[in-house]
Design a protein around this nucleic acid. Sequence first.
DNA 1: TTGAAAGCGCTAACAG
DNA 2: CTGTTAGCGCTTTCAA
Lengths: 338, 338
Amino acid sequence: MAVTIKDVAKLAGVSISTVSRVINKSKPVSSEVKAKVLEAIDELGYKPNEVARSLVTRRSNLIGVVATDIGRSYIAQNVRGIEEVARMYNYDIILSNSYGDPRTEKKFAGLLRSKQVEGIVLISEIPNDEVIEYIGDFGIPFMYLNKYYISSGLPSVSIDHREAGYRMTNYLIELGHRNILYLTSYEGRDSSLERYKVEGYERAMDNVIGARKQVYPAQGFRVEHGYAIGDEVRKLIEEDDITAIFCCHDELALGLMGYCYDNGIKIPEDISICGYGDTKMASIYRPQLTTIREPYYDMGAVAIRRIIKYLNDGELEEGNTYLPIQLMKRQSCSSNCR
Amino acid sequence: MAVTIKDVAKLAGVSISTVSRVINKSKPVSSEVKAKVLEAIDELGYKPNEVARSLVTRRSNLIGVVATDIGRSYIAQNVRGIEEVARMYNYDIILSNSYGDPRTEKKFAGLLRSKQVEGIVLISEIPNDEVIEYIGDFGIPFMYLNKYYISSGLPSVSIDHREAGYRMTNYLIELGHRNILYLTSYEGRDSSLERYKVEGYERAMDNVIGARKQVYPAQGFRVEHGYAIGDEVRKLIEEDDITAIFCCHDELALGLMGYCYDNGIKIPEDISICGYGDTKMASIYRPQLTTIREPYYDMGAVAIRRIIKYLNDGELEEGNTYLPIQLMKRQSCSSNCR
DNA sequence: TTGAAAGCGCTAACAG
DNA sequence: CTGTTAGCGCTTTCAA
């Protein structure tokens, strides 16, 4: 049986209230008594039962995180940010993976509430109004991270995708490219964030005489989709004289680069390719991937910070927090255009 | 104020015990009463307070995970395995990142105990007898995952590194290589697992007439270390006519491959390189990395399964669980030797 | 400065 | 089958 506050009290020859007071420094305790208590705690190796404490204080010091899949590199970075900042404020993280199922997201949110978490961060890759409404009713602070879908009005953290799309495109234009293909992920719905990036892309292209816009859809945004679209892209390159491809996500770019490698297409000599996200792999891969940095760690850190701020001050910030954009110029894009 | 069991009892016109019974299906309840209770629960949107429940049942349904850094790809996979299996048995995961500091590992272990976790998985990258002893005293099941250091006797999960080193080396030999460099991570201590891998490597080399063994240390096992050792390795290749390099970890191999790319050394035409681990990147990178698969997801899954088994049956399995070895033959190794 | 006692929300005997 | 009651380990009034 674990040692409890009673054991400590008995050994120190004081009441449990006194022990509680020295643990929490909640009220003055005479230094001699305090010494005795501390000694007893030390001798017994006593650690307060946080569950009991939570029950009475109504503070679990727990933050719930529902993520699509911690196995995704960027999500791991999100979670790192969350965990590290939470830790600074003495919060622990309960983690659950939904694997992209909306019903699971909702179920886990409910489980987290049962565990009395004080706040929830949802890292999703799908639109899911139902879970958002559901969590909204919990009456605890909630942050929503989704790098694929629009979360208009929801408390969230991201970069300005319009601006990012614009900047990246402009960089390619500066390199001398005119026929730049924007490779998007296929989207039935228009709640996709792609909308903004494409807007930025088009705005940049429209500024330049002789630039030819072209937006082409892949079947998704993962590595395998980038690889799979290779044949089609190759055709486009030849037919339309494309010299640079702006991929809507790093993973897609990496898949496409894999295809190019396997098919003897040289990057950036034959074609410039850039990505979006700056996942870990982007800088390890060769040629290193030119990309837009989405600061995943910071996104997590800011998200949890907003939750904690609310928990401390009751101050509720609304809407999206915009983080600075960084263009990572690397090896995969050059001015070697035809 | 959240709705409690009392509210439900009042609305349903029954006692709280009855409500408890229908929630837990712990004792028979007449179907009409049950219906009333269920209705009340639904109407109020009642969710039992797990904290209160934990306090009385002494079961938190929480598993603590202390990891070095969830940002590392393989650790994310470990945690995925842990989380997914734990979930099947209704356990939640509390996650903390130690960032490799032994004192932090110990501190977090203590915090987890305070939170009444029912088991702990420690994913470490350092030797740390102190924390092991500390957790050992908690009297809860404990699994130790460390892919760099020996955990002799401790409950753990891994592949047979001796055999893996042997098999990989043999594969290179079969490809025709004779001068194979084993690139290890620098180790002052001999509690490193490298010992086993090198043993396997040497055993394979010793079997072959004309094979020349050479074990060379990098300053560590990360991508940057692989890149940094590039100059030295290049010299070795030339001087000693090395045709293949067996890197002790994928990250090291990837770093070295990056160096090769940047310096015009072709893989596998000029040199064959293989890794160890089969991290996600190994199959995305080009050329794809030939490597030994360490099944990270499974390692996590098996670890948590052993914990849960103990929790259910009280059965304690000791020592290491060995998982099958897989040799991933890919693009980075060929028989193109001089 | 200290102790006694109530109670957080729930489960689990114990009675009935 | 149902209700009453005693805690789980702790914090926090309220008195002393």
